[in-house]
Design a protein around this nucleic acid. Structure first.
Ligand SMILES: [Zn+2]
Ligand SMILES: [Zn+2]
Ligand SMILES: [Zn+2]
Ligand SMILES: [Zn+2]
Lengths: 146, 146
DNA sequence: CCTGCAAATGAAATTAATTTTCAATAAGTG
DNA sequence: CACTTATTGAAAATTAATTTCATTTGCAGG
């Protein structure tokens, strides 16, 4: 199920990207890592085994891989420079336009059962959840047509 | 349904926070704003009507309000300093431990129907979605007991 | 095996967001 | 009114991420 290094390499080639030692090193470290890493943490790991691989290259490679859907990004809350929305109301979800960053509140949430299931399965005590849909609003789609 | 300024003020007082002119100004602007704002944008708006309110105070007030659940944060993708996870596989969701930031992949997703419904209702063309559950893992809960 | 060119790299500078520090100020209690 | 303590804001510090640009290099084509 998991995409292995060889597959990634051939996909990269297919897409016209070059296979550099740096990219190989990064892929290798990712392949042998568990869990998740910040770009900086990955940079450190890579440089424990290989030399002279720049942080910029790590950023660029991660961007490339994420863009191709080969790795995934996680918002780990923390101090992400988030946008703020007014209107408290109850818990709800968000719909964000990728064109103009307009945000629409989505009332209602039926994830309680799902949360309970996850809790049972994983032993986590679920505290909260975040759901965001991303898409293009009508306005932005109009603009794209011209 | 919405919490109004007066209610917020009394809640703040209840919690032992002081009601300063700065906080009033920020609350006032939030109350009259639509949609969402970055801290910087809010800062600008506040200073169009009031004078001498520092950006730091805006940050602090937003943090306070968000902490009390009176406003909400949105991750608008962009260049949030995200954490990265290995393992591509198919689309899936995440469960994040708020104690140790451990991330667990949650296989399966049954939000397609929901996405279609949202699309119909809002006119957005849904491109993707993000679901994150946050909770405390077994290990972190153990630690908390001591 | 060469050659040439576009893609990729990395050091350094830059941009940007957010947090910390700390002295001065002011809210609210009694 | 006075006192205590939270709050404020300017400036510095921290941190993350991107841009720039000269140099290097993968690899396609000969
Ligand atoms: Zn839009
Ligand atoms: Zn929900
Ligand atoms: Zn944990
Ligand atoms: Zn999903």
């Amino acid at each position: 199920m998991e995409v292995n290094e060889k597959q990634i390499v051939s996909l990269l080639r297919q897409q016209g990207h070059k296979i550099t030692p740096q990219r190989r090193a990064i892929l290798d470290v990712i392949a042998r890592s568990d869990g998740h890493l910040t770009p900086a943490a990955l940079y450190q790991r890579v440089n424990r085994q290989y030399t002279g691989i720049g942080l910029v290259t790590v950023y660029r490679t991660l961007g490339l891989l994420a863009g191709l859907g080969l790795i995934c990004r996680v918002h780990t809350g923390g101090s992400c420079h988030n946008y703020l929305l007014r209107r408290p109301e109850e818990h709800h979800h968000h719909l964000i336009c990728s064109g103009c960053t307009k945000v629409v509140d989505l009332a209602g949430c039926n994830l309680a059962a799902e949360a309970a299931r996850i809790s049972d399965k994983t032993g986590f005590e679920i505290e909260s959840h975040l759901v965001e849909f991303t898409g293009r609003c009508g306005d932005c789609r109009q603009l794209a047509l011209t």
